[in-house]
Design a protein around this nucleic acid. Structure first.
Lengths: 139, 139
DNA sequence: GTGTTTGCAAAGTGTTTGCAATTTA
DNA sequence: TAAATTGCAAACACTTTGCAAACAC
């Protein structure tokens, strides 16, 4: 059953990360982390919050996504030049990106090294594979 | 030596793609394709044009980049959620992205399948590897 | 009470669009 | 001259910021 009172565990976890467990952060954390792996944009998370009758502004959604990312609770996924995606799965892993719908899906680990045409989701065609190795340090 | 008259070859090539070889397109094509492989954004190409005393508007740079991409002369590279990169190398290949400077560099083909720590450019540290498999078709 | 966080509205950034003027064929 | 292209400025989508009011401790 869903919790009717503030979740003491979640409060502790947020506090441990240096984030005050405000009503907004608790509510967004619940949306993000209580439903298995999720891929969200600011907009989709904001919409989910509206649907769940959570009173929160879009600006706070942006702030929270960045704070959670900085705290290691989320990982940014770069697939679209005009939108920031965030993934609740922060482990090293990779994605299918459905170009028409903007949906993201994890690629099961086993598949990534030996991708054959038959491994694609049914009904889809490979458009392209992008591999970007991000570096820090000298130019 | 650089050509002082319109390049008949380039004109033919553009015309074959259904694009009128206008002064702007010819000049941008020369910037893009006469200097080996390049990675540009609209802004960097616009700046290069300014430096080369090519009279062209930023809007035309955007149009041209998209027309060239549609024609298969360029390939988009998605590495930054806030900028569109274009690559004059349209073959399937992958990139190093230097996060601090925004620079892109091709990853030599041989490296991509057996990337070891020593294969990174000197002075850099691995930040992360992003692999995105883009699909068309069912969601 | 003090410092943090929120929410609004304004500003910012990169990109696209509408349309009159210009260029190409 | 007819159709395509350009360039400007306005519009756009997404994101960030400034600051007063609300909140957490």
């Amino acid at each position: 059953m869903a919790e009717l009172r503030p979740n003491a565990d979640a409060m502790k976890r947020l506090r441990a990360l240096g984030l005050r467990p405000t009503r907004q952060r608790m509510a967004l954390a619940r949306l993000l982390f209580d439903h298995g792996n999720m891929h969200v944009t600011a907009e989709t998370l904001y919409d989910s919050a509206q649907d769940a009758d959570i009173k929160v502004s879009l600006a706070t959604v942006y702030n929270t996504l960045h704070q959670f990312t900085a705290a290691g609770l989320l990982r940014q996924v770069i697939v679209d030049p005009s939108r920031c995606y965030f993934d609740t799965n922060v482990d090293e892993h990779h994605h299918f990106f459905f170009e028409e719908t903007g949906q993201l899906a994890d690629i099961p680990d086993e598949l990534i090294r030996s991708m054959a045409p038959g491994d694609l989701p049914p009904g889809t065609k490979l458009s392209r594979i992008d591999i970007v190795v991000r570096l820090r340090g000298a130019a």
